[in-house]
Amino acid sequence: AGVDFLTNDITKPYWETGGKICEVNIQAGIDGMSPDPENSGFHFEQVFSLMFPEGTRTAIPMVVILEDGPSKTVAALNDVFKSQNLMVGRKTTTEVSIGNNLLVDVMGNAASEAVLWNPMIDAAIIQETAKSIEAYGLAYSVSECVILPRMPSNNDPETVKKILSTLTQTAVQAVVYNTDDKQLSDWVRSNDQERYYPVSLT
């Protein structure tokens, strides 16, 4: 659909300008503004090359870590991102933050959405637990990378397998897992192992 939006300054977010949607069209086409069959698609090309310049990445790094309690992996990854001066959005089991700012009174999937939809962030770290996925599902269908530090132990084994499958299916780039965890390794072996990257202390 095409959404017509009125604002007095398109460079600013709507919550600053107070802009409003005035019309929604079901068969939108910006080429209609200057119809020219020879240059069909020209305007779209301009829009897309502005939004996604060639060679730049079009998605921010988004990593999901499946781990209970305070996660050292979350902390380590946060350090890596921060060392690259990236603005990190984080949802952990204890806090939700954008950079150094804590978001209060937001939990669960709403917290994941608050992080992932925040236009300020350059990278996202989402911590999940098997229990929360079992209870509430996921707030997203795609992630870049899923990290599995250990096999979740506080759920019934069949449920854990379902949770692992659901979560790892979101990873478009990779699933990085601790191969020193025997149960986790066994689970990976029983799966399609493409895109799985083992990490071992030995």
Partner: peptide, 22 residues
Amino acid sequence: KEKTEQMAILLALRAAEIMDIP
């Protein structure tokens, strides 16, 4: 405890490497 920390760092670095983050 130290092993958990080492593993955490290795996992984070591997993920960053895959995502082309130096």
